[in-house]
């Protein structure tokens, strides 16, 4: 095994400067409009590179949708936006068969999900029936309709926004769907300085609206696919594989948790750690990468026991405890 590791390391000479440069260009485009939200932008880029979907949660008015929309604009790919409402039907998302009287046949009319980057706004305002329509497409990247399988082109990324469950008129997303999101990013209010900067932008002749059009694509679909392949080359030592498995495994045996994370969570943590390492110009993953992403990968996949919830603990608290207890491999 040791020999294998050395061989992998010697062969692993991928230059990640191109990847850093590309992501820096995206960040620069976004900063023209978005003030702050550095962590959100970085996590969105990591998810895009790691072929994952992102759920962005936050109170209304903190640029969740704007950030996702602008990120989609920086990459030259097909983009679609679906506004989830309580009366939205699965066919409104996936598509439906339309009868043609001339040919006397049914033709499949593709829904808005057929795009490279799909922004689902306020995802938790649609009921479970509509949510369930996303299961297949999010995991397998194809839609089955009337016995026919329709594949989606790569890259395929779902960026969904939602308001906290405590807000009026929202549903709790099914566990099966939550598990399909690589990250759940919690977006907070901007700092005082950031808020002042936002106000200054608005005060200077409604600059924000003009800037939305200023954001230009800086990455093509092929380039994005190439960057994803580069991320796959990032070296991950066996000790860190065990470390990831240990962290996720502990969520299944922890007495404070009612539901632990699935193997899909382990895979998500692995892939995203590699993407984060590449984003920082490293060709190998460190325990810091794993620790940094553990919360965003696991927080929506675990459920606390009622006793722990009554004590005021959150999923992040339990994840933090687990990380503190497990020895960092070195």
């Amino acid at each position: 095994m040791e020999e294998e590791v050395l061989i992998t390391a010697q062969e692993n000479k991928t230059d990640y400067s191109a990847l850093r440069e590309a992501t820096n260009r995206i960040k620069a485009e976004l900063r023209q409009v978005i003030v702050g939200q550095e962590s959100l932008i970085e996590l969105l880029l990591v998810a895009m590179l790691a072929e994952g979907h992102v759920l962005i949660e936050g109170v209304p008015g903190i640029a969740k949708t704007l950030t996702a929309k602008l990120l989609a604009r920086t990459v030259q790919v097909d983009f679609s936006r679906i506004q989830f409402t309580p009366d939205l039907m699965p066919s409104d998302v996936l598509g439906t068969s339309v009868f043609h009287p001339g040919t006397v046949t049914f033709d499949y009319k593709r829904g808005p999900i057929f795009a490279n980057i799909v922004l689902i706004d306020e995802i938790n305002r649609a009921p479970a029936k509509t949510q369930a329509s996303l299961f297949e497409v999010m995991e397998e990247q194809h839609v089955t309709h009337d016995g026919e399988v329709y594949k989606l082109s790569s890259p395929f990324v779902v960026l969904a926004t939602q308001n906290p469950i405590e807000q009026e008129g929202t549903y709790r997303l099914p566990e099966a769907q939550l598990d399909r999101f690589m990250f759940k990013v919690l977006v907070d209010y901007p700092s005082l300085e950031e808020e002042i900067a936002i106000l200054e932008l608005q005060h200077n002749g409604n600059k924000l609206k003009r800037d939305l059009d200023c954001v230009q694509p800086v990455l093509s679909a092929n380039e994005l696919v190439a960057l994803r392949e580069a991320v796959q080359q990032v070296h991950l030592d066996k000790k860190l594989l065990e470390y990831i498995a240990q962290i996720v495994g502990e969520t299944r045996t922890n007495k404070s948790l009612y539901l632990g994370a699935s193997p899909r969570a382990s895979i998500a943590l692995l892939n995203s750690s590699k993407a984060l390492a590449a984003l920082r110009g490293r060709g190998f993953v460190t325990p810091e990468d794993v620790q940094e992403l553990a919360s965003v990968v696991l927080r929506h996949r675990i459920l606390l026991t009622p006793e722990r919830e009554m004590e005021g603990l959150t999923a992040d608290d339990i994840i933090k405890q687990i990380i503190q207890k497990i020895e960092v491999p070195r």
Binding site: N254, M310, Q324, E327
Partner: peptide, 24 residues
């Protein structure tokens, strides 16, 4: 009830006893 008394006074416990043995 096995409740965490630290939380009763608005202070979150940093580390709680975990029901597993870890490699150290």
């Amino acid at each position: 009830l096995g409740m965490d008394t630290g939380n009763l006074f608005g202070k979150k416990t940093e580390i709680s006893d975990m029901p597993y043995q870890v490699y150290e």
